[in-house]
Design a protein around this nucleic acid. Structure first.
Lengths: 207, 207
DNA sequence: CGTTCAATTAATAGACCTATTAAATATAGT
DNA sequence: ACTATATTTAATAGGTCTATTAATTGAACG
Protein backbone atom coordinates (compact mmCIF):
# COMPACT_ATOMS: atom_id res chain seq x y z
CA UNK A 1 0.00 0.00 0.00
CA UNK A 2 1.50 3.31 -1.03
CA UNK A 3 0.78 6.72 0.35
CA UNK A 4 -0.51 9.17 -2.20
CA UNK A 5 2.49 11.40 -2.77
CA UNK A 6 0.79 12.96 -5.78
CA UNK A 7 0.29 16.63 -5.11
CA UNK A 8 -2.62 17.95 -7.10
CA UNK A 9 -1.93 20.73 -9.54
CA UNK A 10 -4.83 22.65 -8.07
CA UNK A 11 -3.03 22.76 -4.77
CA UNK A 12 0.26 23.70 -6.38
CA UNK A 13 -1.45 26.61 -8.07
CA UNK A 14 -2.93 27.73 -4.77
CA UNK A 15 0.46 27.59 -3.11
CA UNK A 16 2.17 29.43 -5.94
CA UNK A 17 -0.53 32.08 -5.91
CA UNK A 18 -0.30 32.47 -2.17
CA UNK A 19 3.42 32.91 -2.32
CA UNK A 20 3.31 35.46 -5.13
CA UNK A 21 0.35 37.41 -3.83
CA UNK A 22 2.00 37.69 -0.44
CA UNK A 23 5.29 38.79 -1.91
CA UNK A 24 4.11 41.20 -4.56
CA UNK A 25 0.44 41.90 -4.07
CA UNK A 26 -2.49 41.42 -6.40
CA UNK A 27 -1.77 43.85 -9.21
CA UNK A 28 1.87 42.95 -9.53
CA UNK A 29 1.19 39.24 -9.83
CA UNK A 30 -0.04 37.79 -13.12
CA UNK A 31 -1.75 34.46 -13.72
CA UNK A 32 1.10 33.72 -16.11
CA UNK A 33 3.60 34.08 -13.28
CA UNK A 34 1.44 31.94 -11.02
CA UNK A 35 1.29 29.21 -13.64
CA UNK A 36 5.03 29.36 -14.16
CA UNK A 37 5.67 29.14 -10.41
CA UNK A 38 3.26 26.21 -10.11
CA UNK A 39 4.69 24.53 -13.20
CA UNK A 40 1.66 24.42 -15.44
CA UNK A 41 -0.07 26.14 -18.31
CA UNK A 42 -1.56 29.55 -17.65
CA UNK A 43 -5.04 28.45 -18.73
CA UNK A 44 -5.08 25.89 -15.96
CA UNK A 45 -5.12 28.62 -13.38
CA UNK A 46 -8.37 29.82 -14.90
CA UNK A 47 -9.68 26.28 -15.32
CA UNK A 48 -9.53 25.70 -11.58
CA UNK A 49 -10.32 29.17 -10.29
CA UNK A 50 -12.02 30.87 -13.23
CA UNK A 51 -10.80 34.36 -12.41
CA UNK A 52 -7.74 35.85 -10.82
CA UNK A 53 -10.02 37.72 -8.43
CA UNK A 54 -11.60 34.46 -7.35
CA UNK A 55 -8.28 32.82 -6.67
CA UNK A 56 -7.11 35.80 -4.71
CA UNK A 57 -10.24 36.05 -2.63
CA UNK A 58 -10.09 32.39 -1.66
CA UNK A 59 -6.56 32.79 -0.35
CA UNK A 60 -7.24 36.14 1.21
CA UNK A 61 -10.35 35.12 3.09
CA UNK A 62 -9.07 31.82 4.37
CA UNK A 63 -5.77 33.31 5.53
CA UNK A 64 -7.34 36.22 7.30
CA UNK A 65 -10.31 34.70 8.94
CA UNK A 66 -7.95 32.10 10.41
CA UNK A 67 -5.54 34.79 11.51
CA UNK A 68 -8.10 37.04 13.14
CA UNK A 69 -9.91 34.23 14.82
CA UNK A 70 -6.67 33.26 16.48
CA UNK A 71 -5.78 36.81 17.40
CA UNK A 72 -9.11 37.47 18.99
CA UNK A 73 -9.55 34.02 20.45
CA UNK A 74 -10.22 34.42 24.14
CA UNK A 75 -10.61 30.78 25.21
CA UNK A 76 -7.03 30.46 26.46
CA UNK A 77 -7.33 33.49 28.69
CA UNK A 78 -9.76 32.11 31.24
CA UNK A 79 -7.41 31.12 34.05
CA UNK A 80 -4.96 33.97 33.76
CA UNK A 81 -4.85 37.16 35.75
CA UNK A 82 -4.95 40.48 33.94
CA UNK A 83 -1.23 40.97 33.45
CA UNK A 84 -0.85 37.38 32.32
CA UNK A 85 -3.69 37.89 29.86
CA UNK A 86 -1.91 40.87 28.32
CA UNK A 87 1.32 38.91 28.11
CA UNK A 88 -0.50 36.01 26.51
CA UNK A 89 -2.22 38.21 23.94
CA UNK A 90 1.01 39.90 22.95
CA UNK A 91 2.99 36.68 22.76
CA UNK A 92 0.43 34.73 20.78
CA UNK A 93 -0.06 37.63 18.42
CA UNK A 94 3.69 37.75 17.95
CA UNK A 95 3.94 34.01 17.29
CA UNK A 96 1.14 34.16 14.78
CA UNK A 97 2.96 36.90 12.91
CA UNK A 98 6.15 34.89 13.02
CA UNK A 99 4.32 32.12 11.18
CA UNK A 100 2.78 34.55 8.69
CA UNK A 101 5.29 37.34 8.31
CA UNK A 102 3.92 38.58 4.98
CA UNK A 103 0.31 38.77 6.07
CA UNK A 104 0.28 42.35 7.41
CA UNK A 105 1.50 43.76 4.13
CA UNK A 106 -1.07 41.84 2.14
CA UNK A 107 -3.85 43.00 4.40
CA UNK A 108 -2.66 46.56 4.16
CA UNK A 109 -2.49 46.62 0.39
CA UNK A 110 -5.54 44.57 -0.34
CA UNK A 111 -7.96 46.36 1.92
CA UNK A 112 -7.10 49.71 0.46
CA UNK A 113 -7.34 48.29 -3.05
CA UNK A 114 -10.76 46.76 -2.74
CA UNK A 115 -13.36 48.07 -0.38
CA UNK A 116 -15.57 44.96 -0.73
CA UNK A 117 -12.93 42.77 0.86
CA UNK A 118 -13.21 45.00 3.84
CA UNK A 119 -16.94 44.49 4.10
CA UNK A 120 -16.52 40.73 3.80
CA UNK A 121 -13.89 40.65 6.49
CA UNK A 122 -15.91 42.92 8.74
CA UNK A 123 -18.89 40.61 8.45
CA UNK A 124 -16.79 37.58 9.32
CA UNK A 125 -15.28 39.21 12.37
CA UNK A 126 -18.44 40.84 13.63
CA UNK A 127 -18.71 39.23 17.02
CA UNK A 128 -15.21 37.98 17.59
CA UNK A 129 -13.45 41.13 18.76
CA UNK A 130 -16.42 42.21 20.87
CA UNK A 131 -16.08 39.17 23.07
CA UNK A 132 -12.45 39.90 23.78
CA UNK A 133 -13.16 43.58 24.39
CA UNK A 134 -15.90 42.68 26.82
CA UNK A 135 -13.72 40.40 28.91
CA UNK A 136 -10.71 42.65 28.90
CA UNK A 137 -12.52 45.91 29.51
CA UNK A 138 -14.25 44.49 32.54
CA UNK A 139 -11.08 43.21 34.07
CA UNK A 140 -9.18 46.33 33.13
CA UNK A 141 -11.71 48.41 35.07
CA UNK A 142 -11.18 46.27 38.16
CA UNK A 143 -7.43 46.64 37.89
CA UNK A 144 -7.69 50.38 37.47
CA UNK A 145 -9.99 50.71 40.47
CA UNK A 146 -7.60 48.64 42.54
CA UNK A 147 -4.83 51.04 41.41
CA UNK A 148 -2.81 48.17 40.04
CA UNK A 149 -2.95 49.58 36.50
CA UNK A 150 -2.90 53.09 35.09
CA UNK A 151 -6.19 54.54 33.89
CA UNK A 152 -6.21 53.49 30.24
CA UNK A 153 -8.70 52.24 27.66
CA UNK A 154 -8.22 48.69 26.42
CA UNK A 155 -8.00 49.93 22.86
CA UNK A 156 -4.90 51.90 23.81
CA UNK A 157 -3.26 48.79 25.14
CA UNK A 158 -4.27 46.80 22.09
CA UNK A 159 -2.97 49.51 19.81
CA UNK A 160 0.45 49.34 21.41
CA UNK A 161 0.55 45.54 21.29
CA UNK A 162 -0.44 45.35 17.66
CA UNK A 163 1.75 48.28 16.59
CA UNK A 164 4.89 46.91 18.15
CA UNK A 165 4.41 43.36 16.94
CA UNK A 166 3.28 44.16 13.42
CA UNK A 167 5.97 46.78 12.96
CA UNK A 168 8.61 44.18 13.58
CA UNK A 169 7.47 42.34 10.47
CA UNK A 170 6.37 45.35 8.47
CA UNK A 171 8.76 48.19 9.19
CA UNK A 172 11.79 46.64 10.78
CA UNK A 173 12.88 44.54 7.76
CA UNK A 174 12.98 47.75 5.77
CA UNK A 175 14.99 49.61 8.36
CA UNK A 176 17.30 46.63 8.59
CA UNK A 177 17.84 46.82 4.83
CA UNK A 178 18.50 50.55 4.99
CA UNK A 179 20.95 50.17 7.84
CA UNK A 180 22.62 47.10 6.32
CA UNK A 181 21.85 44.74 9.18
CA UNK A 182 23.32 41.28 8.97
CA UNK A 183 21.18 38.17 9.07
CA UNK A 184 22.23 37.52 12.68
CA UNK A 185 21.35 41.04 13.76
CA UNK A 186 17.90 40.64 12.22
CA UNK A 187 17.30 37.33 13.94
CA UNK A 188 18.49 38.70 17.22
CA UNK A 189 16.18 41.70 16.96
CA UNK A 190 13.15 39.53 16.24
CA UNK A 191 13.75 37.37 19.31
CA UNK A 192 14.77 40.30 21.41
CA UNK A 193 11.75 42.41 20.51
CA UNK A 194 9.35 39.62 21.38
CA UNK A 195 10.20 40.04 25.05
CA UNK A 196 10.88 43.77 24.84
CA UNK A 197 7.48 44.47 23.30
CA UNK A 198 5.88 42.79 26.29
CA UNK A 199 8.04 44.92 28.56
CA UNK A 200 6.92 48.07 26.81
CA UNK A 201 3.29 47.15 27.38
CA UNK A 202 3.77 46.21 31.02
CA UNK A 203 5.59 49.45 31.76
CA UNK A 204 2.86 51.35 29.99
CA UNK A 205 0.36 49.77 32.38
CA UNK A 206 2.23 50.71 35.54
CA UNK A 207 0.22 53.27 37.50
CA UNK B 1 1.30 93.94 -12.71
CA UNK B 2 -0.25 90.52 -12.31
CA UNK B 3 1.10 87.56 -10.46
CA UNK B 4 1.69 84.53 -12.61
CA UNK B 5 -1.22 82.30 -11.70
CA UNK B 6 -0.36 79.99 -14.56
CA UNK B 7 0.48 76.61 -13.13
CA UNK B 8 2.67 74.68 -15.51
CA UNK B 9 1.33 71.41 -16.82
CA UNK B 10 4.60 69.76 -15.87
CA UNK B 11 3.92 70.60 -12.25
CA UNK B 12 0.30 69.46 -12.49
CA UNK B 13 1.49 66.12 -13.80
CA UNK B 14 3.96 65.80 -10.96
CA UNK B 15 1.25 66.57 -8.42
CA UNK B 16 -1.21 64.16 -10.01
CA UNK B 17 1.41 61.46 -10.11
CA UNK B 18 2.38 62.05 -6.52
CA UNK B 19 -1.21 61.81 -5.40
CA UNK B 20 -1.92 58.62 -7.34
CA UNK B 21 1.36 56.89 -6.55
CA UNK B 22 0.84 57.60 -2.87
CA UNK B 23 -2.72 56.34 -2.92
CA UNK B 24 -2.36 53.27 -5.07
CA UNK B 25 1.31 52.52 -5.55
CA UNK B 26 3.37 52.21 -8.70
CA UNK B 27 1.89 49.17 -10.42
CA UNK B 28 -1.71 50.17 -9.84
CA UNK B 29 -1.25 53.63 -11.30
CA UNK B 30 -1.13 54.11 -15.07
CA UNK B 31 0.24 57.06 -17.00
CA UNK B 32 -3.24 57.35 -18.52
CA UNK B 33 -4.73 57.89 -15.06
CA UNK B 34 -2.03 60.40 -14.22
CA UNK B 35 -2.76 62.35 -17.39
CA UNK B 36 -6.48 62.29 -16.66
CA UNK B 37 -5.93 63.50 -13.11
CA UNK B 38 -3.63 66.26 -14.35
CA UNK B 39 -5.98 67.17 -17.18
CA UNK B 40 -3.81 66.51 -20.18
CA UNK B 41 -3.01 64.00 -22.88
CA UNK B 42 -1.29 60.80 -21.82
CA UNK B 43 1.63 61.39 -24.17
CA UNK B 44 2.47 64.57 -22.33
CA UNK B 45 3.38 62.61 -19.26
CA UNK B 46 6.04 60.86 -21.31
CA UNK B 47 7.04 64.07 -23.05
CA UNK B 48 8.06 65.61 -19.74
CA UNK B 49 9.30 62.56 -17.87
CA UNK B 50 10.04 60.06 -20.65
CA UNK B 51 9.25 56.98 -18.59
CA UNK B 52 6.86 56.15 -15.80
CA UNK B 53 9.80 54.82 -13.82
CA UNK B 54 11.57 58.14 -14.17
CA UNK B 55 8.57 60.08 -12.95
CA UNK B 56 8.13 57.78 -10.03
CA UNK B 57 11.76 57.90 -9.00
CA UNK B 58 11.82 61.68 -9.03
CA UNK B 59 8.87 61.84 -6.68
CA UNK B 60 10.06 58.96 -4.58
CA UNK B 61 13.57 60.26 -4.04
CA UNK B 62 12.65 63.85 -3.33
CA UNK B 63 9.89 62.89 -0.90
CA UNK B 64 11.99 60.46 1.02
CA UNK B 65 15.26 62.22 1.25
CA UNK B 66 13.36 65.23 2.61
CA UNK B 67 11.47 63.03 5.05
CA UNK B 68 14.48 61.17 6.36
CA UNK B 69 16.61 64.23 6.63
CA UNK B 70 13.99 65.78 8.86
CA UNK B 71 13.54 62.62 10.91
CA UNK B 72 17.22 62.25 11.55
CA UNK B 73 17.96 65.94 11.84
CA UNK B 74 19.71 66.50 15.14
CA UNK B 75 20.24 70.27 15.06
CA UNK B 76 17.19 71.05 17.20
CA UNK B 77 18.25 68.70 19.95
CA UNK B 78 21.28 70.59 21.21
CA UNK B 79 19.85 72.38 24.21
CA UNK B 80 17.54 69.65 25.42
CA UNK B 81 18.18 67.10 28.13
CA UNK B 82 17.87 63.42 27.29
CA UNK B 83 14.19 62.98 28.07
CA UNK B 84 13.35 66.16 26.23
CA UNK B 85 15.34 64.92 23.26
CA UNK B 86 13.30 61.72 23.15
CA UNK B 87 10.08 63.68 23.41
CA UNK B 88 11.20 65.99 20.65
CA UNK B 89 12.16 63.13 18.34
CA UNK B 90 8.85 61.37 18.82
CA UNK B 91 6.77 64.51 18.41
CA UNK B 92 8.54 65.78 15.32
CA UNK B 93 8.41 62.33 13.77
CA UNK B 94 4.71 62.26 14.49
CA UNK B 95 4.11 65.70 12.98
CA UNK B 96 6.05 64.79 9.88
CA UNK B 97 3.86 61.74 9.41
CA UNK B 98 0.76 63.84 9.94
CA UNK B 99 1.83 65.96 6.99
CA UNK B 100 2.67 62.90 4.88
CA UNK B 101 0.27 60.21 6.01
CA UNK B 102 0.62 58.10 2.86
CA UNK B 103 4.38 58.05 2.84
CA UNK B 104 4.95 54.94 4.98
CA UNK B 105 2.86 52.77 2.70
CA UNK B 106 4.63 54.00 -0.39
CA UNK B 107 8.01 53.35 1.16
CA UNK B 108 6.94 49.90 2.21
CA UNK B 109 5.63 48.86 -1.18
CA UNK B 110 8.23 50.51 -3.30
CA UNK B 111 11.29 49.28 -1.48
CA UNK B 112 10.16 45.70 -1.69
CA UNK B 113 9.25 46.13 -5.35
CA UNK B 114 12.55 47.56 -6.48
CA UNK B 115 15.80 46.78 -4.77
CA UNK B 116 17.70 49.59 -6.57
CA UNK B 117 15.58 52.25 -4.87
CA UNK B 118 16.83 50.87 -1.64
CA UNK B 119 20.44 51.25 -2.65
CA UNK B 120 19.82 54.82 -3.78
CA UNK B 121 18.12 55.72 -0.54
CA UNK B 122 20.80 54.02 1.51
CA UNK B 123 23.48 56.04 -0.25
CA UNK B 124 21.64 59.29 0.39
CA UNK B 125 21.18 58.57 4.06
CA UNK B 126 24.62 57.20 4.69
CA UNK B 127 25.85 59.61 7.31
CA UNK B 128 22.65 61.14 8.54
CA UNK B 129 21.43 58.49 10.97
CA UNK B 130 24.92 57.88 12.31
CA UNK B 131 25.15 61.40 13.65
CA UNK B 132 21.92 61.03 15.57
CA UNK B 133 22.93 57.61 16.86
CA UNK B 134 26.24 59.00 18.05
CA UNK B 135 24.70 61.83 20.02
CA UNK B 136 21.90 59.78 21.48
CA UNK B 137 23.95 56.73 22.37
CA UNK B 138 26.47 58.81 24.25
CA UNK B 139 23.84 60.58 26.29
CA UNK B 140 21.89 57.40 26.81
CA UNK B 141 24.97 55.79 28.36
CA UNK B 142 25.29 58.66 30.79
CA UNK B 143 21.64 58.40 31.77
CA UNK B 144 21.93 54.67 32.28
CA UNK B 145 25.05 55.04 34.42
CA UNK B 146 23.28 57.68 36.50
CA UNK B 147 20.43 55.17 36.91
CA UNK B 148 17.96 57.67 35.52
CA UNK B 149 17.11 55.38 32.60
CA UNK B 150 16.77 51.64 32.22
CA UNK B 151 19.61 49.77 30.51
CA UNK B 152 18.50 49.85 26.88
CA UNK B 153 20.03 50.30 23.46
CA UNK B 154 19.05 53.42 21.53
CA UNK B 155 17.82 51.29 18.65
CA UNK B 156 15.24 49.77 20.98
CA UNK B 157 13.94 53.18 21.88
CA UNK B 158 13.90 54.27 18.26
CA UNK B 159 12.09 51.11 17.25
CA UNK B 160 9.29 51.83 19.69
CA UNK B 161 9.02 55.48 18.64
CA UNK B 162 8.86 54.67 14.96
CA UNK B 163 6.58 51.66 15.38
CA UNK B 164 3.99 53.51 17.39
CA UNK B 165 3.94 56.60 15.23
CA UNK B 166 3.99 54.88 11.87
CA UNK B 167 1.39 52.34 12.93
CA UNK B 168 -1.05 55.11 13.60
CA UNK B 169 -0.97 56.04 9.93
CA UNK B 170 -0.40 52.57 8.54
CA UNK B 171 -2.35 50.11 10.66
CA UNK B 172 -4.82 52.15 12.62
CA UNK B 173 -6.85 53.43 9.64
CA UNK B 174 -7.41 49.83 8.67
CA UNK B 175 -8.49 48.78 12.13
CA UNK B 176 -10.74 51.81 12.27
CA UNK B 177 -12.39 50.67 9.04
CA UNK B 178 -12.81 47.14 10.33
CA UNK B 179 -14.30 48.33 13.59
CA UNK B 180 -16.47 50.98 11.90
CA UNK B 181 -14.97 53.96 13.66
CA UNK B 182 -16.57 57.32 13.02
CA UNK B 183 -14.62 60.26 11.67
CA UNK B 184 -14.56 61.86 15.12
CA UNK B 185 -13.26 58.70 16.77
CA UNK B 186 -10.46 58.56 14.21
CA UNK B 187 -9.50 62.17 14.74
CA UNK B 188 -9.59 61.75 18.48
CA UNK B 189 -7.34 58.69 18.33
CA UNK B 190 -4.77 60.48 16.20
CA UNK B 191 -4.50 63.39 18.63
CA UNK B 192 -4.72 61.13 21.63
CA UNK B 193 -2.02 58.77 20.45
CA UNK B 194 0.43 61.58 19.81
CA UNK B 195 0.73 62.16 23.55
CA UNK B 196 0.17 58.53 24.52
CA UNK B 197 2.98 57.33 22.26
CA UNK B 198 5.34 59.64 24.09
CA UNK B 199 4.05 58.27 27.39
CA UNK B 200 4.72 54.72 26.25
CA UNK B 201 8.31 55.62 25.46
CA UNK B 202 8.91 57.48 28.68
CA UNK B 203 7.53 54.63 30.76
CA UNK B 204 9.68 52.23 28.81
CA UNK B 205 12.71 54.27 29.84
CA UNK B 206 11.91 54.26 33.57
CA UNK B 207 14.52 52.22 35.42
C1' DC C 1 3.68 88.35 -41.07
C1' DG C 2 6.49 84.54 -40.99
C1' DT C 3 9.73 81.68 -38.63
C1' DT C 4 11.19 79.02 -34.68
C1' DC C 5 10.72 76.37 -30.89
C1' DA C 6 7.97 74.56 -27.10
C1' DA C 7 3.71 72.39 -25.70
C1' DT C 8 0.14 69.36 -26.77
C1' DT C 9 -2.52 65.87 -29.13
C1' DA C 10 -3.95 61.83 -32.05
C1' DA C 11 -2.57 57.61 -33.58
C1' DT C 12 -0.41 53.60 -33.09
C1' DA C 13 3.25 49.88 -32.32
C1' DG C 14 4.38 46.37 -29.34
C1' DA C 15 4.16 44.04 -25.02
C1' DC C 16 1.65 41.78 -21.65
C1' DC C 17 -2.49 40.49 -19.27
C1' DT C 18 -7.04 38.04 -18.41
C1' DA C 19 -10.18 34.96 -19.90
C1' DT C 20 -12.22 31.79 -23.19
C1' DT C 21 -12.40 28.06 -26.57
C1' DA C 22 -11.26 24.07 -28.81
C1' DA C 23 -8.19 20.47 -29.16
C1' DA C 24 -5.12 16.99 -26.99
C1' DT C 25 -3.95 13.95 -23.33
C1' DA C 26 -4.59 11.26 -19.30
C1' DT C 27 -7.60 8.43 -16.17
C1' DA C 28 -11.04 5.37 -14.99
C1' DG C 29 -15.05 2.40 -15.50
C1' DT C 30 -17.49 -1.11 -18.16
C1' DA D 1 -10.77 -1.79 -26.31
C1' DC D 2 -14.27 1.86 -25.95
C1' DT D 3 -16.36 5.58 -23.91
C1' DA D 4 -17.01 9.14 -20.60
C1' DT D 5 -14.87 12.43 -17.76
C1' DA D 6 -11.24 15.18 -15.88
C1' DT D 7 -6.94 17.46 -16.71
C1' DT D 8 -3.89 20.02 -19.45
C1' DT D 9 -2.36 22.61 -23.37
C1' DA D 10 -2.16 25.76 -27.55
C1' DA D 11 -4.15 29.45 -29.65
C1' DT D 12 -6.19 33.53 -29.54
C1' DA D 13 -9.68 37.39 -28.77
C1' DG D 14 -9.98 41.60 -26.59
C1' DG D 15 -8.31 44.79 -23.39
C1' DT D 16 -4.98 47.90 -21.22
C1' DC D 17 -0.55 49.55 -20.62
C1' DT D 18 3.95 52.09 -21.88
C1' DA D 19 6.33 54.50 -25.09
C1' DT D 20 7.15 56.58 -29.55
C1' DT D 21 6.13 59.25 -33.73
C1' DA D 22 4.21 62.52 -36.51
C1' DA D 23 1.11 66.08 -36.80
C1' DT D 24 -1.17 70.29 -34.68
C1' DT D 25 -1.53 74.23 -31.89
C1' DG D 26 0.39 78.08 -29.32
C1' DA D 27 3.63 81.59 -28.03
C1' DA D 28 7.63 84.55 -28.72
C1' DC D 29 10.41 87.30 -31.57
C1' DG D 30 12.79 89.58 -35.29
Amino acid sequence: MSINLEISMEKLILEAAEKLFLEKGFDSTSTTQIAKEAGCNQALVHYYFRTKDNLFNMIFESKFSAFFQQVFDSTHLANLNFIEKIKYISNSHFDLLLENPHLPKLLLNELSRKKESLAVLREKLKNIPEKLFLIMNKELQEEIEAKRVKDLAFIDILFVVISLNVSLFLIFPLAADLLNFSEEQRKYMIEHRKTENVNVILNYLRP
